[in-house]
Amino acid sequence: VYKEIAITNGCINRMSKEELRAKLSEFKLETRGVKDVLKKRLKNYYKKQK
């Protein structure tokens, strides 16, 4: 499980701001904020899904 999260986090870290926004809107999450906030939001979402 932790390895999956680590791989997902690595992918998220390599995403551009536009990619992050697209992914967040896909999951109907808030898309406003600076890049670091968007990354954190997406990581938290994936963590809750596990």
Rank of each mutant, 00 (worst) to 15 (best):
A22Q: 13
K35R: 05
C11G: 13
K50R: 12
E19Q: 14
E19M: 09
S16E: 03
S16V: 03
K43N: 06
V1R: 06
Y2E: 15
K23E: 05
K23A: 12
E19K: 07
K47C: 05
L42H: 01
R21H: 04
L38F: 04
E26N: 08
K40A: 06
T8I: 08
T8N: 11
A22C: 13
E30T: 04
I7G: 11
K23I: 09
K35P: 02
Y2T: 15
N13M: 02
F27G: 03
K17T: 06
D36I: 07
Y2A: 14
V34E: 05
Q49M: 13
L20E: 02
C11Y: 13
K43D: 03
K43A: 04
K39L: 04
E26I: 06
Y46C: 15
K48D: 07
F27M: 14
Q49F: 09
Q49W: 09
E26R: 05
K40W: 00
K35S: 05
Y2W: 12
E26L: 09
Y45F: 12
F27T: 05
Y45H: 13
T31A: 09
L29K: 04
K50E: 11
E26Q: 11
K48I: 04
R41S: 04
R21N: 02
F27L: 15
K3L: 07
T8F: 05
Q49D: 07
E26C: 07
K35E: 04
R41D: 00
L20T: 01
L38M: 07
T31P: 11
V37F: 05
C11K: 13
K39I: 06
K17P: 02
L20R: 00
E30K: 06
L20F: 05
Y2Q: 15
L42Q: 01
E26S: 09
K35Q: 03
K48M: 09
N13I: 04
K43L: 04
V37A: 13
N9C: 13
Y2D: 15
E18S: 15
E4F: 09
C11D: 15
E18D: 13
K3T: 12
F27R: 09
K23L: 10
S16Q: 05
G10A: 11
C11F: 11
R21K: 15
K43Q: 05
K43C: 02
E4Q: 12
L29N: 02
G33N: 00
M15S: 00
I5G: 14
M15E: 00
K3M: 08
D36S: 15
R14N: 10
K39P: 00
T31M: 08
K3Q: 13
K28Y: 06
G10K: 11
L42S: 05
K3F: 07
N9P: 14
N13H: 04
K3A: 12
K23F: 04
S16F: 03
R21E: 02
A6I: 14
V34P: 06
K47D: 04
E4L: 07
I12F: 03
E30F: 05
R41W: 00
Q49E: 09
I5P: 14
I5W: 09
M15H: 02
N44R: 14
K28F: 06
L42R: 01
Y45D: 01
K17I: 07
E18M: 14
V37L: 05
I12T: 05
L24P: 00
K35N: 03
R21T: 05
L38Q: 02
K23H: 10
Y2M: 14
E30V: 03
R41H: 00
K39F: 01
T8P: 12
T31D: 06
L20Q: 01
A6R: 11
E30S: 10
N13C: 02
E18Y: 09
K48V: 06
E19Y: 04
N13Y: 06
L42N: 01
Y46L: 15
D36L: 09
E30M: 03
A6D: 09
Y45C: 06
S25C: 11
K50C: 08
R41G: 01
S16M: 00
L20K: 01
L38A: 01
K47G: 06
T31E: 07
K47F: 04
E18R: 15
K47H: 06
L24K: 00
N44Y: 08
R32K: 09
K23T: 10
R41Y: 01
K28E: 10
K47R: 11
I12W: 06
S25R: 14
R41A: 01
L20I: 10
D36Y: 10
K39T: 05
R41N: 01
N9E: 08
N44S: 12
K35I: 05
R41M: 02
S16N: 13
K17G: 04
N44A: 14
G10N: 10
L29D: 02
K40F: 00
T31W: 10
T31Y: 15
G10Y: 08
L38W: 04
L29I: 07
Q49N: 12
V37H: 03
V34Y: 08
K28N: 14
K43T: 05
V37R: 11
K17V: 10
K17W: 02
A6Q: 09
E4M: 11
K17M: 05
S25V: 09
I5C: 14
G33R: 03
T31F: 15
E30I: 03
E18L: 14
K28S: 13
V1T: 11
G10R: 08
K39E: 01
M15A: 03
C11N: 13
K40I: 02
T31C: 13
S16H: 12
E4K: 08
K40C: 03
I7C: 10
K28G: 15
L20S: 05
G10I: 07
R21A: 05
Y46T: 11
L20D: 00
E30G: 05
K3R: 11
S25H: 12
K28Q: 11
L42G: 02
S25F: 11
T31L: 04
I12A: 02
K43E: 03
K47Q: 07
G10S: 11
G33Q: 00
L24Y: 01
K23M: 09
Y2C: 14
E30P: 08
G33E: 02
K40D: 03
C11S: 14
E18N: 15
V37D: 08
E26H: 08
L29S: 04
N9M: 15
Q49A: 10
I5H: 14
F27V: 15
T8Q: 09
I5N: 14
N9I: 13
M15P: 00
Y2P: 15
Y2L: 13
R14H: 10
R14Q: 12
R41P: 02
A6Y: 14
N9R: 15
V34L: 09
R21I: 08
E18V: 15
A6K: 14
I5T: 15
L38D: 06
N9D: 08
E18K: 15
E18T: 15
R41F: 01
R14C: 07
R41K: 01
N13A: 05
Q49S: 09
Y2F: 13
E4V: 10
N44L: 10
R32W: 05
Y45T: 00
Y45V: 02
K48F: 05
S25K: 14
Y46Q: 10
V34N: 15
A6H: 14
D36M: 08
K17Y: 04
Y45K: 01
A22I: 13
E18Q: 15
S25Q: 13
C11V: 14
E19V: 06
K3N: 15
I7Q: 11
V37W: 03
